[in-house]
Design a protein around this nucleic acid. Sequence first.
DNA 1: GTCACAGAAATTTTT
DNA 2: TTTCTGTGAC
Length: 696
Amino acid sequence: MSDVPRIYPSRPVESTEPARDLRAELNAEQAAAATFPSGPLLIIAGAGTGKTRTLTYRVADLLQRGIPAERILLLTFTRRASQEMLSRVERLVGSASRQVHGGTFHSTGHRLLRRFGASAGVPSDFTIMDQGDAEDLMQLSRASLGVADAKKKRFPKKETLHYIYSRHINTEIPIEEIIGAEYPPFLEYVEAITRIYADYTERKATRNLVDYDDLLLFWLAMLEGSDSLGSRIAGLYDHVLVDEYQDTNTLQARILSAMCRGHGNLSVVGDDAQSIYAFRGASFRNILDFPRSFPDTTIVTLEENYRSVQPILDVSNTLISRAAERYTKNLWTKREGGEKPWLVSVQDEPQQTRFVVERILELHEQGMPLREMSVLFRAGYMSADLEIELTNRKIPFDKWGGLKFLEAAHVKDILAFLRVLENPRDEVSWYRILMLLPGIGDSTARGLMEGLQEQAWHPDAFQRIVPPARAREAHTALGTLLHRLRTTDDTPGAVAREISRIRTLYDDILKEKYDHPDSRLSDLEQLQGIAGGYPSRGAFLSAIALEPPQSTQDLGSGAEDDETDTLVLSTVHSAKGKEWDAVFLIWAVDGYFPMSRSIGNEEELEEERRLMYVAMTRARNHLAVTYPLHSYGSRRGADYSIDQLSRFLDREVRGQMERVVPQFDALPDTPAEPSAGVDLRAVMRGRFRGGGTGGR
DNA sequence: GTCACAGAAATTTTT
DNA sequence: TTTCTGTGAC
């Protein structure tokens, strides 16, 4: 490297210099964490304290110490986070870092299972089911056991069954205990439910299917099972680093412990105050208990915030100080001044929308790009009104979270065809395809699948089956299509061509099924485009299951948002790890935030509080929290209500905020008299209380 | 058994 | 607005 000719004048130490002093670029605590020699390390990193930076530098430091890149495993929460971190490492120490293994827990489990699964009884050509598929398979088990007797009392739905199952796997809490705590009415079915789970597990095994939970479960099983395999996998890495540790669950903690059993070199970064994935089995106890699970843990706390102005930190600190159990830390910054966060009371949702839009335009006129602003909310549907208004005003926005492209029925239909080609035993996909065809309903579909099973799911089995007369035409059409698709084609773009062939059959079904097929057809075009970028059908299906695109924008040509100036609308969950110059938090109302479902449950309420903390700490310079005083509609049976400000914004928190009451001019497009204090619509809705009609 | 239709229900957060 | 469920015709 020293042979590279120097450019004159020579610049200060370049990133490719091996002797770069990383320590000098960090504060004292960050440096201590980044250069920590070995053993268990827990970094408690408050929001905006340079968590990513510290972890990045730690990887760089390990590389500088001579640890081979491929013996470092970096586990992150999203693929984005891992890519970002690895590219930052590369900038620090050069391309040698490209060999560092990085990814999510699930994608790492996936990789290991493809590689080592065969020796543990999982053939490497399995297909991954996403949550929806897993629920559908659960439905097949549920129906085949005939446990759900329609006449009797209600039995848990497939979603509930899957939720309990997944929770059991991820938290290792016994099934009975979960049901007792969350669904006491179903306690009498524990035995039947357990039988369904046994059947579900069996079905997965015989159909060569793997669900999300299995990716972790099998990883752990491989580690703890046979000695040689376990040691071989654990022996792949000398150092394991984990980001967002507060969002890991019991199963993941066990995996880590088994991965590091030989060397104990486990570094985790997290913030207990930002633990927001309990519904997925994550437990912030994990981070609280880390020092107990890993004796001789060194703890480093990062408190200096580089993101927000002090008034925003003050409010956030006060908010989170109410939390029952936590690692105490107080964020502070050297940044001076800054405006207090606004607490904005508005009359109702339209006014809230109006305030947000006008304030955004105001900031924009002052020179703030749209991409430096975001609007956050508790749940995806809460931005509906705002989205309409933004569209009307032609303000470009990008919505994160909420409805996903891949969950659309027509997209799943196409994927089902591909999956059957990839894995002829994929029962869920067979059922889905068969039910699309004219003349085939539930029982014919089941009959056909039995026929397939009898022929051991042979790729040609389908064409050999003799269907009932009414389904003959559909059977021939599908059989011909499948036959044509069976030709092996591994030239680039093969997957896209397969989709295009599938569409010769499917597009007609789609047009028949939906009144306005145009937008759905264009979704399929888009899917075809994405598929074109993958080397193989298997790679495409795995990628789409493990790393679904976050928003429809992600699906575009791949051009990053940096070029276009776009406002971000996001759920608080999806906003994790991000930051903006100005943040609007809407619907800060009891029942919305916290959500009414969590009121009454201590733990869930604590999680909601942490969620609000996450939301507030996304803001660098401007934070506005809005709450409508009234809301209409039928949420939770209430038709018209006087809203209460979110309980988290108690007196002391409010005291650190700036009260703002926007004064709007009369709306130009509503030439009505000033409000008489009566809302006719609300009164009318009140007559049909409990109707549950769902707004617009 | 399939299918069309109507009416009802349902909306947290994600790998 | 979309998705699910029940009913009855064929």
